[in-house]
Amino acid sequence: MTLTPPGNGINTSLGDEGLGQQPWWVEQWMELINSYRFKKRLERAWAYAREGHVTSIRFEGRRVHARVQGTGEDPYKVKLWLDVLSDEDWGYVLEALTQKARWSAQLLAGIMPADIERAFAASGRSLFPFKLQEVRSECSCPDKANPCKHISAVYFLMGERFSEDPFVLFQLRGRTRAKLLEDLAEHRRQALEALAESSEANQNEGQGADDSPATLAPPHPAVLDPTLWWRYDAALDGDLVVITPAMDGDTGLDAAGELPLAEEPRFPEAKQHFLTHLREQGQTLAQQAMLAAMAAGG
């Protein structure tokens, strides 16, 4: 697990597993806690995080719940959360995300766009907290200072979770990964429908009273030659091309669901053999395709 110890800006890891480079969004999160003026308290919190005193961290909706073992017998209970965005604010964010396909592509690949705050600027809000005081927190320990060393230890470890899944930041702002992608798909569908209606209206207006076949636009070449459906000869915007393996090990077979095979009633074991072979072949071809794409892009 890669973490940044307080005050020195050097990347290190728990358990002496070696050095590592953190994603930029994790570094920005860590900068907040490293700005805390009580450095001795941060050093103790770092030791707590490194030595395993944080016994559990779980994300429940918009809040983070953790238990941190202090000097007492029972661990202390810690809560962390951010102010959530209203549905109206999220509407502005989703509209901005819809207008820039690169943001959607990078998020789907598990990458936080470097300029993501521009999408949130439309709502007058932000994804990342600007100062440490914007991170709400509670701890059951008797220390009246906030953040205490228990809260700060959890704060350090949250960076690991953000590194694994940047959608956690969106969840803390009020939208889970599933909900965000569902809403984004709906906004894109509405935008495409509006674009199609606008194009049709403009076409009808340009035709005027004469809508004879001679004045209609010719069909797309792919309508006349279906083999063109599988070709795309135009240059691609590099920002829109994201090479990534399937998330969570999913394959096309997983997305397709049950595949009824003709011989299944007679040979029940044949289906499993066939699907296993097909899945292995798909994984092999996917690896070859990624290596070829990376070689071409380099």
Rank of each mutant, 00 (worst) to 15 (best):
I111D: 04
R58W: 10
V68R: 01
I116V: 13
Q69V: 06
V68Y: 04
T55V: 15
D74V: 15
D83V: 02
E88V: 15
S86E: 10
R58L: 13
Q106A: 03
W81T: 12
W103C: 01
W90I: 08
E60C: 01
A119S: 08
V68Q: 03
T71E: 10
L107D: 04
K100S: 05
Y76A: 10
H65R: 15
R67L: 11
E88S: 11
D74A: 15
G61E: 15
S86Y: 11
A66R: 01
I116C: 01
S86R: 08
S56R: 14
I111V: 14
F59Q: 09
A105Y: 08
G61M: 10
A96V: 08
K79H: 13
T55H: 13
H53R: 14
D115S: 09
L107Q: 02
V78Y: 02
Q69K: 13
V68A: 04
V78G: 01
E95M: 12
G91F: 03
F120S: 00
A66K: 01
W81H: 12
P75N: 08
V64G: 02
G110S: 05
G110E: 06
Y92E: 15
R62G: 13
L85M: 13
R102P: 03
V93K: 03
R58Q: 14
L82W: 03
A101E: 15
R62H: 11
A119M: 04
A109V: 02
W90G: 07
L80Y: 11
V64T: 08
L108Y: 03
A105C: 12
R62A: 10
A101V: 10
F59T: 10
F120I: 05
Q99V: 09
W103N: 00
W90V: 03
I111Y: 06
L82D: 02
W90H: 03
E95V: 07
T98Y: 06
T98N: 12
V78E: 00
R102I: 06
E60K: 14
S104T: 12
K79F: 15
S86Q: 14
F59E: 11
I111N: 05
G61C: 06
L107N: 06
D87G: 03
Y76N: 12
F120D: 01
R102M: 11
D74M: 12
A101S: 14
W90L: 02
Q99H: 02
K77E: 13
S104V: 07
E88K: 11
E60N: 11
A109K: 00
S86I: 09
M112Y: 06
M112P: 00
A66D: 03
V54P: 04
E73R: 11
S86F: 11
E88D: 12
I116A: 03
L97P: 00
A114N: 02
R118G: 07
T98H: 07
I111C: 02
